[in-house]
Design a binder for these strands. Structure first.
Length: 108
DNA sequence: CGAGTGACCGCAA
DNA sequence: ATTGCGGCCACTC
């Protein structure tokens, strides 16, 4: 399970993001979004968890350093960061990314 | 070993 | 529209 999560997160290309629910669905547990969060906290911290956002595209709450730090990371990679003071989010509708199972190009 | 928590999501009231 | 509750796997105490 978590291996799939870590795998997917590790395969998330730059300028692209994935939602917890999405990953959870891909591993076979659409309702196990929390598990993804659990893996994020306990699992492999070497993975780009900053590219993982919630359904609203908002940044994680328990991220090391706070949402601010995560926002810095994302904008540093060139993400289109939106949001208000203290609350940030990305264009999940456009930056959302899916594994290469659609037939090659998943979006650019 | 047993119980509780965790960076979430979705439905129901 | 907002608040409340259930559900899953892995890890920690």
């Amino acid at each position: 399970m978590k291996e799939k999560v870590e795998l997917l997160v590790g395969q998330i290309p730059k300028r692209r993001v994935m939602t917890y629910g999405q990953i959870a669905a891909l591993i076979g547990n659409p309702r196990a979004a929390r598990i993804v969060g659990g893996v994020a906290h306990y699992g492999n911290k070497k993975l780009p968890w900053h590219r993982v956002v919630n359904k609203k595209g908002g940044l994680a709450s328990g991220y090391p350093g706070g949402r601010r730090a995560q926002k810095e990371y994302l904008e540093f990679e060139g993400y289109k960061i939106l949001g208000k003071d203290g609350d940030y989010w990305v264009d999940v509708d456009k930056l959302i990314w899916w594994p290469d199972l659609v037939g090659g190009e998943s979006g650019k």
